[in-house]
Design a protein around this nucleic acid. Structure first.
Lengths: 349, 349
DNA sequence: ATTAGCAGTCGTTTGTGGAGAGTGCTAATT
DNA sequence: AATTAGCACTCTCCACAAACGACTGCTAAT
């Protein structure tokens, strides 16, 4: 394919992404100053159509990119650029007052993705089962209630309440024992270990056994991956604007609401680089009217954007990439911080 | 207004709620077996129209209730009934595995409301500032992060991460001091007290003052009311089905997303009984295409349903009422309901 | 290889004419 | 005085047709 044909394709995609209107040879000439006649462009268009890169809705309509056309565009023609400074700054700013809680951090990241892009943003939480236990803390609240706090490598916490008559000293002892035994283990191992403790006989009184059951349950619940989605009301009008039926658009959101299914799917696409799935390249048939721009941010976590197939891929790439790297940095830093902490607080409860 | 006219109005509203089609005198006769002629019904309809209770879209169209008509219907004509046993059972079942965190409980309640009704369900969290402090716990997690756990009268655990260089020993000391001093006070008093201490000079050393600042910050953050909304994708197609523009429908969701504004509005409607706001009875203009069915469930919390004006008010009442009372019971039954539940769960399995 | 010119295609818009649903009115009936 | 039958009237909805216009593909010339 010669350069002019590539340029014609690129211009068609650019223009269609911008306006949503089928592109005619005339428009191409007028708006983009090509130095050939409209007839020549029409010939090129015919060639591109034969190659399956563009198509027309009917015989005398302007051209529209096919999914293959978008794919070619994304792979060879799109101009990648860094996110502009203002947006970069806004993102950094919005992370400034970030609290340490990871789910809150992820939720906010999804929010950022959505707001910066105008599409839907999502963040699939990291696989916590792959992270290591930092410590388990028992805190006596009053005569009968004990608070259990679980801290992972990522600084993530989970807590639950149990009733136990054990004294603070006994609790401390148990805490030391558990921490000595489980610290540094993967959280899924910790969960299994908790189950084993709960089922082992003779070692502990029934109250404590209950505590282990509870610990196991809490971990089990917490290890489920969570999918944070924001900006669905950005995406909806765009999908409807593409001529999608409301019914089918809602299917998209139903899928997003099914965290189990979506997680599994997104997980399979994880990669450190920004990737894109265009339309029916998505396995999930509900997503055929959509494109997915995503990247892994570490710890098997995935984030990205969900937009219509007619999506500003260039912008989507730069936003996803910038925010993804930002989040990766934040998580990695807290990771390091916690490892440092570990050595200094060996005696802590 | 004589009985037949009331019956005509009730039947029109019933039928319109069910079908969404304008109701003709013919239909009324055929489907509901009135014992008078269609001409008589037409006369009654004309009377009702003059009273502003029904209207027609154009001169030869069937009748449709006006908002005033719905209001009359709701106040005088609607048949109230208990929620059917199956739904009652489903609701009780779904609360069985309720978790310890109140926000989770509220979220699930909103979910229930939405799913049972087919509309959008919402739960505005209680005014925690009106509940009493049970205890405050500080747990040092690593060099800079401190977990603050606040246990209120409701047995609710609120947790929050803050940053502080204080040592575990200092934290423990401060915790003991604070608990002795503030336990039993309302949470807003606790917050104010904390602020006063933090700003007072000379009395305390900087460590203690820091603690008060931390406490105030945590409380301030946690006392913000939260609005849980579920089932927006139930509501959306219904609103569009009523002929609402997508744009205006999205306005509704934008309002719901603005927790501050919605909370304030919903709060003002709080009452122990089920109430309804029909269409433009809602102050918020975004909600003019919607009806709001709501009730207070205690502690100044509010929950309810948001549906189109053409809403099954009878069903909405029974669902809201049942779930609202259920939640009230759960929250007030014992002030440590959640702990008890978890313990039972843990030992039961 | 490119271009001008033109015929042909097809969606969009606009207009028209029933068919049908439902009302309001009038005069007759109970 | 309330109710009813009958009928004229109103307005929407649908189908069909005609005019319009945007854009292409093809052909012949450059």
């Amino acid at each position: 394919m010669d350069n002019r044909k590539r340029l014609v394709l690129k211009t068609i995609v650019d223009h269609y992404i911008k306006t949503g209107q089928p592109v005619s040879s005339q428009t191409l000439l007028e708006d983009y100053g090509l130095t050939v006649s409209s007839a020549t462009i029409r010939n090129d268009m015919k060639y591109l159509e034969q190659k399956g890169l563009i198509q027309k809705a009917y015989s005398s309509a302007g051209r529209v990119p096919t999914e293959l056309g978008y794919r070619f565009f994304v792979d060879w023609l799109v101009e990648l650029s860094e996110l502009n400074r203002r947006d970069q700054h806004a993102i950094i700013e919005s992370y400034r007052f970030q609290r340490q809680e990871i789910e809150e951090l992820l939720r906010q990241t999804a929010f950022l993705l959505a707001n910066m892009s105008g599409y839907a943003g999502f963040v699939l939480s990291p696989r916590l089962e792959e992270t290591q236990l930092e410590s388990i803390v028992f805190v006596k609240l009053d005569v009968e209630n004990v608070l259990v706090v679980i801290v992972s490598e990522l600084g993530i916490i989970e807590h639950c309440m149990i009733r136990s008559p054990l004294s603070p000293e006994e609790l401390q002892e148990i805490g030391t024992l558990l921490n000595g035994r489980l610290r540094g283990h993967r959280l899924d191992e910790v969960r299994d270990e908790a189950l084993r403790f709960a089922e082992g006989d003779g070692w502990y009184d029934s109250t404590l056994r209950n505590a282990f059951v509870l610990l196991k349950e809490t971990l089990e619940r917490r290890l489920q991956r969570r999918l944070h989605v924001e900006g669905v009301f950005n995406l909806l009008p765009r999908l409807l604007g593409e001529g999608l039926l409301l019914e089918d658009a809602l299917e998209v959101f139903t899928l997003l609401g099914d965290a189990d299914r979506s997680s599994l799917y997104l997980e399979s696409l994880s990669s450190p680089q920004v990737k894109v799935n265009i339309g029916s390249e998505n396995e999930a048939s509900e997503l055929h009217p959509c494109s997915l721009v995503l990247m892994g941010y570490g710890f098997s976590g995935v984030l990205g954007l969900l937009g219509p197939v007619r999506m500003d891929y260039s912008k989507a790439f730069s936003i996803t990439s910038y925010i993804g790297n930002r989040l990766r940095t934040i998580l990695t830093l807290s990771h390091r911080a916690n490892i440092l902490t570990l050595t200094r607080e060996a005696s802590g409860q």
